[in-house]
Amino acid sequence: SAVVMEEGSPGEVPVLVEPPGLEDVEAALGMDRRTDAYSRSSSVSSQEEKSLHAEELVGRGIPIERVVSSEGGRPSVDLSFQPSQPLSKSSSSPELQTLQDILGDPGDKADVGRLSPEVKARSQSGTLDGESAAWSASGEDSRGQPEGPLPSSSPRSPSGLRPRGYTISDSAPSRRGKRVERDALKSRATASNAEKVPGINPSFVFLQLYHSPFFGDESNKPILLPNESQSFERSVQLLDQIPSYDTHKIAVLYVGEGQSNSELAILSNEHGSYRYTEFLTGLGRLIELKDCQPDKVYLGGLDVCGEDGQFTYCWHDDIMQAVFHIATLMPTKDVDKHRCDKKRHLGNDFVSIVYNDSGEDFKLGTIKGQFNFVHVIVTPLDYECNLVSLQCRKDMEGLVDTSVAKIVSDRNLPFVARQMALHANMASQVHHSRSNPTDIYPSKWIARLRHIKRLRQRICEEAAYSNPSLPLVHPPSHSKAPAQTPAEPTPGYEVGQRKRLISSVEDFTEFV
Rank of each mutant, 00 (worst) to 15 (best):
F362T: 02
A487F: 12
Y313D: 04
D349T: 10
C340F: 15
S262L: 04
Y383Q: 05
V376Y: 01
N348Y: 08
L289P: 15
A327S: 10
K296L: 05
L364H: 14
C305F: 11
E360S: 10
V304D: 10
K342L: 06
P482G: 12
V351M: 01
N386I: 00
Q457N: 13
L286T: 06
I459Q: 06
N412L: 01
L455T: 07
S469A: 12
P294G: 12
R285K: 14
V404T: 12
N348E: 14
C385I: 06
H271D: 09
V304K: 13
L264Y: 13
P437F: 05
V473F: 13
E263D: 05
R411Y: 06
V374N: 01
D308E: 13
Y276A: 01
S433H: 14
L264V: 13
R339W: 13
K499Y: 09
N356D: 02
V351E: 00
L501M: 11
C292A: 12
L267N: 03
N348L: 10
R275A: 01
N227H: 14
R411P: 06
L264N: 10
S219W: 08
L264T: 15
T247A: 04
E384S: 08
S433D: 06
T485H: 11
N372V: 08
Y274L: 08
F324R: 01
I377Y: 02
K290N: 13
R458F: 14
M420I: 07
Q457H: 12
P475D: 15
C392F: 04
V430R: 02
A427I: 07
R450Y: 05
K444G: 15
S466F: 11
H316I: 15
F311S: 05
N348R: 15
F232M: 11
M396H: 03
E307P: 06
G301Y: 04
Q497K: 08
P243Q: 08
P222F: 06
H431A: 11
M330Y: 05
C292D: 15
E257A: 07
K296Y: 11
S479A: 13
L390E: 02
L289I: 14
T247G: 04
T402R: 07
F311H: 08
N220H: 13
E510T: 12
E228V: 09
F232T: 09
S428Q: 04
R344I: 10
N269W: 00
R275T: 00
R458P: 13
S389Y: 08
G272E: 02
Q419F: 05
Y276F: 05
Y274E: 06
P468G: 09
L239G: 08
E218W: 09
H248N: 05
K333F: 14
S358H: 01
S229P: 09
H474S: 15
F415N: 03
Y355F: 04
R275M: 00
E494W: 06
S260T: 12
N227C: 09
H345P: 05
M330D: 05
E233D: 10
